[in-house]
């Protein structure tokens, strides 16, 4: 399946959960927030929500920033 993550197209062998996908990318799921097709994915559902072909994901975290 092809998934657009943070504006980059990524290819995966099969459909997987948000949690599995984050782990596959080397991202600590506890430190990020995920939006799937413009909808927030609650942290508690990372293991249950499946990512499918054509999905658009945003994976964000906190960085230094000011006013």
């Amino acid at each position: 399946m092809k998934v657009m993550i943070n504006g980059e197209e990524k290819t995966f062998a099969e459909s997987m959960s948000v949690e599995a996908l984050l782990t596959d990318l080397g991202i600590d799921p506890r430190k990020v927030a995920v939006e799937r097709n413009l909808e927030i994915v609650p942290k508690s559902t990372y293991a249950d929500v499946a990512v499918g072909d054509g999905d658009r994901l945003e994976v964000v975290h906190f960085i230094g920033g000011g006013c």
């Binding site: 990318l25 080397g26 964000v60």
Partner: peptide, 15 residues
């Protein structure tokens, strides 16, 4: 703090 995309090419950099 600001909210920004995680750098996918180097997700392990310090946060």
């Amino acid at each position: 703090v600001a909210v920004r995309r995680v750098n996918l090419s180097d997700p392990s950099q310090p946060m």
